[in-house]
Simulated assay, not measured.
Amino acid sequence: MTSDPLILVVDDLAPNVRLLEAVLSPRGFRVATASSGEEALDVLSKEYPDVVLLDILMPGMDGYEVCRRIREDPGTAFLPVIMITASGEQEKIRAIESGADDFVNKPFDQAELLARVRSLVRVKRYHDTIQQQAGELARWNRELEQRVQDQIEQLDRVSRLRRFLPAQLADLIISSGD
């Protein structure tokens, strides 16, 4: 990994945010925080985290809506989201249906949370690498298409020259670059 992974922690309760920071920071994660769904979306417009840890039950915009909006935005559609809540099994199903990649119950087991975060950071880094390679491949394809087009134009010029000049003279003019 090139830099420490950035984790966006979204929870309306400051003690929960501090707890997650205390778990993540000493283990090599940078932490950005938001205390509401609206603030989380604002942070996502400026920062590029590797994973979002998202509380479900928040005043205003709940975690489900935040997750749906993350999935709707092409820039964050593949951003891994782990939803965290003290609620039961029904909440887990709704979390997955809203687009969450994983789910952790409160109170959470630190080792389990860290394992899930590391796993999704790894997946995100793979995705980022694939996106970068796809961009490079597209650039190379454009360059190759341009080279082919240039060669076709060159062949066309040679063909026209050979219609009006002897082959040896046409070859001499072409090889001189004129």
Rank of each mutant, 00 (worst) to 15 (best):
I56F: 06
A100I: 06
R69N: 08
P166C: 01
S25C: 07
A167H: 09
Q90L: 11
P166F: 03
D12V: 08
A34G: 07
A134P: 00
P26G: 03
S25G: 02
E47P: 02
E91T: 12
A86D: 03
L113I: 12
G88L: 02
L113R: 03
V66M: 01
R125E: 15
Q149R: 15
Q168C: 01
I96F: 15
M61G: 02
E38F: 07
A77R: 14
Q132R: 13
R157M: 11
C67N: 04
L44D: 07
A100W: 06
L13R: 11
A34E: 06
D109R: 14
A100C: 05
R68E: 15
T33L: 00
D156V: 03
G60M: 04
G177F: 11
V123T: 13
V23H: 04
L113V: 05
P59S: 04
R162I: 04
D4I: 01
V148T: 14
V66H: 02
R71G: 02
R142S: 13
A167K: 12
L155T: 09
E38T: 15
L161R: 06
E38Y: 08
P107T: 12
D102N: 13
E65A: 13
S87T: 05
R68N: 05
S35M: 08
K124Q: 15
L161I: 05
S98H: 09
D128R: 08
D109P: 03
R118E: 15
D150M: 10
V66K: 01
D55F: 03
L54A: 01
A167M: 03
F164D: 10
P5Q: 05
Q154M: 10
Q133R: 14
A134Q: 12
S176P: 00
V10S: 02
D101Y: 10
R163N: 13
T2K: 11
G60N: 06
G28A: 07
E143D: 15
S87G: 04
G37K: 06
M61D: 04
W140I: 12
N105K: 13
R160D: 14
A111V: 14
E38N: 07
F29E: 02
E38C: 02
Q110M: 06
I93N: 00
